[in-house]
């Protein structure tokens, strides 16, 4: 294999882009060439360090400055006054709907109790495929892998003492979500993140939780083999 080709394979391997045949080819080359092994080790270390470079909190005035400079056209439209024609039209429509409902109920009689409908209407449509509980470290709580209509998602129900980001990696796909959990989100609803284009059926989903740019916890979610 030419020098340039195996360098390309090393980079592709680092990015999780190598297929089985090329991985075997690279492995053979690495066994035979100590320089290639050194290069691979250096590049892997470099990429690990690059991935872990700390992020800086933007200055507080950045947000204020941006919002202060927003043109007035993006300011929320004022509420319509009660005397406007829209309100009059809305009132007429509401009256028609209420009258229609009364007539319908009178003709049809009472329907089933709300509880009888809850199984079909309120059912959660996403299937939980895997769940991992995180311990009592800087990040605690639960993360779940969900599947819904051919789409994969991860649901985060977590508590952290500081704003936390998550890096989601599955095969060649990576997704970073900033502010996935934090002290200001305690008691809020679980956060769901869809995984566009992720091939979760073939690869596990690796989660790395970062606080101030440093990894503080990790978890692996996968589809069970029997699914």
């Amino acid at each position: 294999m030419a020098h340039r080709e195996y360098i390309t394979l090393i980079h592709a391997e680092i990015d999780g882009e190598l297929d089985a045949a090329n991985r075997a080819e690279l492995a053979r080359h690495l066994l035979a060439d100590p320089n290639a092994r050194t290069l691979r080790e250096d590049l892997r270390r470099l990429c690990t360090e690059l991935d872990a470079l700390p992020e800086v909190e933007p200055p507080a005035q950045l947000r204020r400055n941006i919002l202060a400079a927003l043109p007035q056209s993006t300011v929320k439209r004022p509420a319509l006054s009660l005397s406007s024609p829209y309100w009059r039209l809305a009132a007429v429509l509401a009256a028609v709907v209420v009258a229609g409902a009364i007539v319908f109920e009178t003709v049809k009689g009472p329907g089933p109790a709300a509880g009888n409908l809850s199984g079909t209407i309120a059912a959660r449509t996403a299937t939980i495929v895997d769940t991992v509980r995180l311990g009592d470290g800087p990040v605690s709580g639960r993360v779940s892998l969900l599947h819904e209509r051919a789409q994969w998602a991860v649901e985060f129900d977590m508590v952290t003492g500081a704003p936390a980001d998550v890096l989601i990696v599955s095969g060649a796909h990576r997704l970073r979500v900033n502010g996935i959990a934090g002290p200001d989100k305690v008691g809020g609803p679980p956060r769901r993140v869809t995984l566009p284009d992720f091939e979760v059926s073939q690869q596990p989903v690796e989660l790395s939780f970062l606080v101030a740019g440093r990894q503080v916890a990790s978890a692996t979610l996968r589809q069970p083999a029997d699914r």
């Binding site: 992020e55 800086v56 909190e57 933007p58 950045l62 947000r63 941006i66 919002l67 970073r176 900033n178 502010g179």
Partner: peptide, 11 residues
């Protein structure tokens, strides 16, 4: 949108 993206954009 500012809250969501100010950090990655700034960094």
């Amino acid at each position: 949108l500012v809250v969501r993206y100010q950090r990655p954009v700034f960094n």
